[in-house]
Amino acid sequence: MIDLIVLPLIKIVFVLTGVLITVMYLVLLERKVQAWVQARLGPMRVGPHGVLQPIADVVKLFVKEDVTPVRAEKWVFTLAPIIVLVPSLIAFAVIPFGPEVNLFGRPVPLYITDLNVGLLYIVSVAAIGVYGIILGGWSSNSKYPLLGSLRSSAQLISYELAVTLTFVSVILAAGSLSMVQIVEAQHANGVWFAFVQPVALFIYGVGALAETNRNPFDLPEAESELVAGFHTEYSGMRFALFFLAEYTNMIVVSAVATTLFFGGWLRPFPNVEWLSFLGLVPAWIWFTLKTFALLYVFLWIRATLPRYRYDQLMQLGWKWLIPLAIANIVVTAAVKVILGS
């Protein structure tokens, strides 16, 4: 009873709260990093160095007027932000934050569940999120959102292929689709898959930027062309849900990258004996540190690179990344067969 219902519920509450708080502070971090890159201070007014800014933002979003355009499709208009947010939150169900630990004399795994199709589960959940974006743009009954949502869904579908193909080569290297076993395979091999699969990591990185609509692939919300893209007509808390989903997706792709390519919860150099003092730091802290390092890369790229042109984006996805990913699978499989025999 406790293992079946109570424990998972407690974990879900912990993970959801953790994710939402992380999102709030990720927004602050983004503004701060942007500001530092541009030699500014960033938010400074609310609390020391602006640490209370996220709370002020949330309050602002809550009390704002919630406008539904008159000619909008009300039912779908309300549903769209929910369809975007829920998949990005439930993706955390299979992300392993750490191995089994003993808590109050009871073995507690630091993940909500370990599906034997964990990686595919994340792909399938991400596939559902596209609906929210298409429907949000369509139901607004307005030109810019519709154009933004068409761009966005075309981009998501194109880059999803490349990202899923990189998963195949990682699965080949690990011999499993379970997120926990992928981390354990990296422990057994004594090397992060970032070094075994550098091509896959590169494609995943580019694809992840495109999937989360981040710079340099933030065409769906290109301000200079589309006002704000698919969420132009949204305001107040419904806009906040889209915003929340975007940042949650950033955390999801960073956490997946940590798990697949950077050894998940493992300490650096897990097989080097004299570094075992690094194991004193709990596993979930290593996981969090790695995820945040990757999130920082996201923010860094946004501050550095200009936006792509739309046709360049499609060319890059279909003519370069997908063939490269397929070639990578062929090479990985061949190497695996040669080494195995």
């Binding site: 599906l115 199709v117 595919l120 589960y121 399938s124 959940v125 596939a127 609906y131 298409i134 369509w138």
Partner: peptide, 25 residues
């Protein structure tokens, strides 16, 4: 059959019906 379930979501809900939606829109 978890594998089939996930494939069902990826292929049908995530792929084919998105195309339907495009056509309808």
């Amino acid at each position: 059959a978890q594998f089939l379930a996930v494939i069902q979501v990826i292929v049908y809900a995530g792929g084919i019906v998105v195309l339907y939606l495009f056509v309808v829109m």
